[in-house]
Computed example of a mutant assay.
Amino acid sequence: MLVFVIPLKSPQASKSWELVTKLFERCIKSVCHQTSSNYRVIVVCHQKPKIEFDHPHLTYIEVDFPPAINEPDTFSRGHTDKGRKILKGLIHAQEFSPSYTMTVDADDCVSKYLAEFVNQNHQNNGWFINKGYKYQNESDVIYVKRRNFYKMCGSCNILRYDLNNLPENPEYNRGYGYYKFYIDHEKVRETLAKDGNHLQPLPFPGAVYIIATGENLYYGTSQLTFSIFNRKTLNPSIREEFNLYPLNL
């Protein structure tokens, strides 16, 4: 079974809780759009968002973690909070006896074929998404990221559950460094390879990185390149696979 873990920022840490909620609702609809029913979704949040969508495979965990006030800047505080929530979700995933887990950022969309693929390929340590898409809301085009998608987007690693480096006694009041493995998604592949646990590239585009929302922790449009050679029309097939619908902001 594949278990998706989604950390959701708090209303207090959001510039627009309304926007965060709309992005999250599209994300969760995308994740629950799987062609296989052998998956579960865990959302870890300070406050459960008010959305109409619900699903029997969806679990919310509400936490009361204190703000990461000892971190030097807003960037570090946001990532520390995210790391705590990811760890909490991965620990809770034990209840479902997962074979694999995948952390998904709460504004991204994922392929509907992920659970099916994972359930048919249990012999691997896991996969990293080397090829994916990047998309700016309300656009009628989408950009193909042909390699190194995992270095750009946090929704990128599918790991065999025992490779998540989970502490025996998890703590949720520590600083950034304690959660680095869960936060630094671009380093997971290299970290695991050092111990002989090599990840394979997912053989199809696995996720859509939603950019320039104003709520991203990592990148704005100024840090992303847009080549016309990688641009393609956002056709109905891509929209359906990733459940990528307009938000009408």
Rank of each mutant, 00 (worst) to 15 (best):
F4I: 09
V5R: 08
L8E: 01
S10R: 01
Q12V: 12
V20Q: 06
K22L: 00
K22S: 02
L23Y: 00
S30Q: 09
V31N: 03
C32Y: 13
T35M: 14
N38T: 02
N38H: 10
Y39W: 06
K48Q: 14
H55K: 11
P56S: 10
E62K: 10
P67N: 12
T74S: 14
H79L: 14
T80Y: 09
K82I: 02
K85N: 12
G89R: 11
L90M: 11
A93S: 15
A93E: 08
S99Q: 10
Y100C: 07
T101Y: 02
V110H: 05
Q120N: 15
N121G: 11
Q123S: 14
G126Y: 00
G126V: 03
W127E: 07
K131Q: 15
Y133H: 05
Y133F: 14
K134Q: 15
N137K: 12
D140I: 11
V141W: 09
V141E: 14
K145L: 09
S155Q: 03
S155Y: 04
S155E: 04
C156H: 04
I158D: 01
D162H: 12
N165I: 01
N165E: 12
L166G: 09
P167T: 12
E168V: 14
E168W: 05
E168K: 13
Y172W: 03
R174T: 06
G175V: 12
G177P: 07
Y179C: 10
F181E: 00
I183W: 00
K187T: 05
R189V: 10
A193L: 08
K194M: 11
N197K: 15
Q200E: 15
Q200L: 15
P201T: 10
A207N: 02
A207Q: 03
I210R: 01
A212R: 07
A212M: 05
S227V: 06
I228E: 14
F229R: 10
I238A: 08
E240T: 13
E241R: 11
L244S: 09
P246F: 07
L249A: 04
